[in-house]
Design a binder for these strands. Structure first.
Length: 267
DNA sequence: ATGCCTTAATGTTTAAGA
């Protein structure tokens, strides 16, 4: 099974690039973040024409997540359980979470696609929102694991887990992507028993998944590793490959993120 | 100089991204 996550920075701007990537890579499931459109505006036809079904959680202007699948799946949640409108500076339940169930390895597996708040905007309330979101995410992961569920969390976590996940000069000290409170909450996810797929298979190289549009970040390789796939134990046992697809950053008018592709051995 | 680019929208400028 091949599963992937990609922050596309507007699906309406990036639809052709995503379709082309599906044609070449053929993931079974692709989770998308920052589709930046309402659910009805998602360009579903471009993907159904390629054999993919789409499930979309959109909102106007910002955020927005979706999943494209060429294998059967059912949506089990369209918001992170426990989040309330008043928890966000926007006063909304934001479109940041989609969870599905699919068949794998003779059982059912839960896959969650997520777009964590950046935490640098909206001042202290914005940062608090990020921490609260990570607290609710840990509770959700713990509930699934406690129920004995095979599961994975994939998406744009907006977290550089360690210093080596942030190129020198890519962020200012104090940025919300590397704040100690944020890194501690990422570690809590790991300590629940989840495996960071990319870092586990590639202990040494940076494995960046994002390069800012500004200041020549891409040609200078001033990147960040902020898009992650965390696997529960049974899935981690089947892990055979996991890597950001750097080539996508060199395409015409690319997203500032590249897809992260994870391959799990089939039974 | 919290800029430098890109996106969407209350659009000739703002807010968010990270």
């Amino acid at each position: 099974m091949k599963i992937a996550t990609w922050n596309v920075n507007s699906i309406r701007q990036r639809g052709a690039l995503v379709a082309d990537w599906l044609d070449r890579v053929a993931p079974d499931l692709l989770f998308l973040q920052e589709i930046k459109c309402e659910t009805e505006a998602f360009p579903t036809e471009a993907f159904t024409a390629r054999g993919y079904r789409a499930a979309v959680v959109g909102q106007k202007t910002y955020h927005g997540v979706a999943v494209l699948g060429r294998v059967p799946f059912e949506v089990t949640a369209t918001a992170l359980p426990g989040m309330r409108p008043e928890d966000a500076p926007s006063g909304l339940i934001e479109a940041r979470y989609i969870e599905v169930e699919t068949a794998f390895a003779g059982g059912r597996t839960t896959l969650a696609g997520l777009y964590l708040p950046n935490g640098n905007s909206a001042g202290a309330p914005g940062f608090a929102h990020k921490l609260r979101w990570m607290d609710r995410l840990a509770e959700r992961a713990a509930a699934l694991l406690g129920a004995g569920r095979d599961m994975a969390l994939l998406g744009d976590f907006n977290v550089c887990p360690e210093d080596r996940d942030c190129a020198p000069g890519a962020l200012q000290p104090g940025d919300a992507l590397l704040a100690p409170e944020v890194r501690a909450r990422f570690r809590r996810l790991i300590w629940l028993g989840l495996t960071d797929a990319v870092r586990t298979l590639h202990p040494e190289p940076p494995c960046y998944s994002f390069w800012d549009y500004q200041a020549g970040a891409w040609p200078r390789d001033r990147g960040l590793r902020i898009d992650h796939a965390l696997l529960s134990p049974v899935l981690a046992e089947r892990l055979v490959a996991a890597l950001p697809d750097r080539a996508e950053r060199d395409r015409p008018q690319p997203s500032d993120h590249v897809p992260v592709l994870v391959t799990l051995a089939d039974p």
